[in-house]
Lab assay of single mutants.
Amino acid sequence: KYFGTAKARYDFCARDRSELSLKEGDIIKILNKKGQQGWWRGEIYGRVGWFPANYVEEDYS
Score class of each variant (00 low, 15 high):
residue 2 Y to L: 08
residue 3 F to S: 11
residue 60 Y to Q: 12
residue 43 E to L: 05
residue 38 G to S: 05
residue 31 L to A: 02
residue 47 R to H: 09
residue 10 Y to M: 15
residue 41 R to V: 07
residue 19 E to M: 14
residue 6 A to F: 03
residue 18 S to P: 02
residue 41 R to S: 07
residue 61 S to E: 09
residue 10 Y to W: 12
residue 17 R to Q: 13
residue 61 S to F: 08
residue 52 P to Q: 05
residue 34 K to W: 08
residue 57 E to N: 10
residue 1 K to A: 06
residue 22 L to N: 01
residue 57 E to R: 11
residue 43 E to D: 05
residue 38 G to C: 03
residue 58 E to L: 09
residue 25 G to C: 01
residue 52 P to H: 03
residue 30 I to M: 05
residue 19 E to G: 03
residue 41 R to Y: 12
residue 44 I to N: 15
residue 33 K to S: 04
residue 9 R to W: 03
residue 5 T to E: 09
residue 56 V to I: 05
residue 12 F to A: 05
residue 53 A to V: 08
residue 15 R to M: 05
residue 23 K to Q: 09
residue 16 D to W: 04
residue 5 T to Y: 13
residue 54 N to R: 15
residue 32 N to F: 11
residue 34 K to Q: 14
residue 34 K to L: 08
residue 16 D to E: 09
residue 39 W to K: 10
residue 18 S to V: 04
residue 9 R to N: 08
residue 50 W to R: 04
residue 12 F to Q: 05
residue 28 I to D: 00
residue 5 T to P: 06
residue 46 G to F: 00
residue 12 F to K: 00
residue 35 G to V: 06
residue 4 G to V: 09
residue 54 N to V: 12
residue 51 F to Q: 03
residue 55 Y to F: 09
residue 30 I to V: 14
residue 4 G to N: 11
residue 32 N to Q: 14
residue 53 A to I: 08
residue 55 Y to W: 10
residue 35 G to K: 10
residue 60 Y to C: 11
residue 35 G to L: 06
residue 25 G to T: 00
residue 33 K to L: 01
residue 37 Q to N: 12
residue 8 A to R: 01
residue 59 D to Y: 09
residue 48 V to W: 05
residue 60 Y to G: 13
residue 34 K to F: 07
residue 40 W to K: 07
residue 1 K to R: 04
residue 33 K to E: 06
residue 34 K to Y: 10
residue 19 E to R: 00
residue 8 A to G: 00
residue 19 E to W: 06
residue 17 R to I: 12
residue 33 K to N: 03
residue 14 A to K: 03
residue 33 K to C: 03
residue 27 I to G: 03
residue 46 G to C: 02
residue 36 Q to M: 15
residue 56 V to S: 01
residue 38 G to T: 03
residue 58 E to R: 07
residue 52 P to S: 00
residue 10 Y to S: 14
residue 19 E to F: 04
residue 26 D to M: 06
residue 16 D to K: 10
residue 32 N to W: 09
residue 56 V to E: 05
residue 21 S to R: 03
residue 21 S to E: 13
residue 7 K to Q: 12
residue 30 I to A: 05
residue 18 S to A: 15
residue 46 G to T: 05
residue 5 T to I: 09
residue 7 K to C: 13
residue 12 F to R: 07
residue 13 C to H: 11
residue 11 D to W: 03
residue 16 D to T: 11
residue 15 R to C: 06
residue 51 F to N: 05
residue 22 L to I: 14
residue 54 N to I: 07
residue 54 N to W: 12
residue 60 Y to K: 11
residue 4 G to C: 08
residue 14 A to I: 01
residue 25 G to S: 02
residue 45 Y to P: 10
residue 29 K to D: 09
residue 58 E to D: 06
residue 50 W to D: 05
residue 38 G to Q: 10
residue 3 F to P: 09
residue 46 G to Q: 08
residue 47 R to C: 08
residue 55 Y to M: 13
residue 60 Y to E: 14
residue 34 K to T: 11
residue 48 V to D: 05
residue 52 P to G: 00
residue 48 V to R: 12
residue 50 W to Q: 05
residue 26 D to C: 03
residue 55 Y to L: 15
residue 34 K to A: 13
residue 26 D to Y: 06
residue 2 Y to G: 11
residue 41 R to N: 07
residue 52 P to A: 01
residue 20 L to P: 01
residue 13 C to Q: 15
residue 49 G to R: 00
residue 23 K to T: 09
residue 57 E to G: 06
residue 53 A to N: 06
residue 27 I to Q: 09
residue 34 K to R: 14
residue 29 K to G: 08
residue 60 Y to M: 14
residue 21 S to L: 04
residue 17 R to P: 14
residue 3 F to T: 13
residue 9 R to P: 00
residue 32 N to L: 08
residue 28 I to C: 06
residue 15 R to K: 11
residue 19 E to Y: 03
residue 23 K to I: 05
residue 50 W to H: 03
residue 9 R to M: 13
residue 13 C to F: 14
residue 39 W to R: 09
residue 31 L to V: 08
residue 14 A to Q: 05
residue 59 D to T: 14
residue 59 D to R: 08
residue 54 N to S: 13
residue 13 C to A: 13
residue 32 N to D: 15
residue 49 G to S: 04
residue 14 A to G: 09
residue 56 V to T: 02
residue 11 D to P: 08
residue 30 I to K: 00
residue 41 R to C: 14
residue 41 R to I: 06
residue 32 N to C: 14
residue 28 I to T: 08
residue 6 A to Y: 09
residue 44 I to L: 15
residue 59 D to L: 11
residue 23 K to D: 04
residue 46 G to Y: 00
residue 41 R to L: 14
residue 8 A to I: 05
